[in-house]
């Protein structure tokens, strides 16, 4: 299991961030996000609890076809919003295929201590795989990918925020606002790292191919084992 965490600051107040969180999709660059549904939602002890189901497309790499037959990834997003303490917590996990890969991401958005008009996001991620012969490669790829996407995610959320709150955006630190728009045209908006990672792990796992190739001979011998290990996830 790999663990990773980082913190980022948004130059928007917490209410704006909380508001924008529900309006991440659709956007022109999130075509891989297919659906978004609210499964349950309730206010309990002053805190809003929500569970959502997201689906995304994925491309299955050749070597993964034996493991994964479907081309849609389902993601469960649990969240709590506490308006009193101004805390938004999100917790996402992939549904099914958890033996092949399990990616859990937790993000806590709070008022920035240095500037009450800003919001700090503390992100933690747990990346795991239990596929014999592949787990290390998948985990390493996942972690690398996750780190690279931190900047993308940060810029993406800034883009969404800037469009929702242009008045606030005009007071943003110029270098920050520049950064917030630079990557977007090419890279698209990635508002949840875990979702992106969950997507990319299945979709772009060809990148692991090199590492996986070394394991191919072994994997072929053990294909029966892998398949058996994977079966419970399919049924």
């Amino acid at each position: 299991m790999k663990y990773y965490e980082n913190s980022t600051i948004f130059q928007f107040n917490w209410n704006q961030v909380a508001h924008a969180f529900w309006q991440r999709y659709p956007n022109p660059n999130s075509t891989h996000v297919l659906t978004e549904d609210t499964i349950s939602r309730k206010v309990k002890n002053g805190i809003l609890h929500t569970t959502r189901l997201l689906t995304k497309t994925n491309r299955v790499p050749k070597w993964g076809e034996r493991l994964i037959s479907k081309n849609v990834v389902k993601i469960i997003e649990e969240s709590t919003v506490d308006p009193k303490t101004k805390t938004l917590t999100t917790y996402t996990r992939n549904l099914g295929y958890t033996k092949v890969m399990s990616i859990v991401e937790k993000v806590v958005y709070k008022v920035c201590e240095e500037n009450p008009n800003w919001t700090v996001a503390k992100r933690s991620a747990w990346i795991d795989s239990q596929v014999f012969g592949f787990s290390r490669a998948i985990q390493a790829f996942g972690l690398d990918r996750f780190k690279k996407n931190c900047t993308l995610m940060y810029n993406g959320f800034n883009y969404v925020l800037a469009h929702m709150f242009p008045h606030t955006a005009q007071y943003m630190n110029p270098s920050l606002s520049q950064m917030g728009f630079a990557h977007l045209i090419d890279e698209g908006i990635k508002t949840s790292l875990a979702e992106d990672l969950q997507h990319s792990l299945q979709g772009k796992a060809e990148k692991v191919k090199d590492a996986a190739k070394k394991a191919t001979d072994l994997a072929k011998k053990r294909a029966g084992t892998i398949y058996a290990a994977y079966q419970p996830e399919q049924s």
């Binding site: 663990y3 349950s40 469960i76 099914g96 859990v104 937790k106």
Partner: peptide
């Protein structure tokens, strides 16, 4: 719709956040 699409509703509804299932941050 979830029933029709054979989505495992128990797995969907099982809470992780704020339960023992929730992973612990390493701080």
């Amino acid at each position: 719709a979830m029933k029709d699409q054979n989505i495992n509703i128990d797995e969907v509804n099982m809470a992780h956040l704020g339960t023992e299932q929730e992973k612990k941050t390493e701080d």
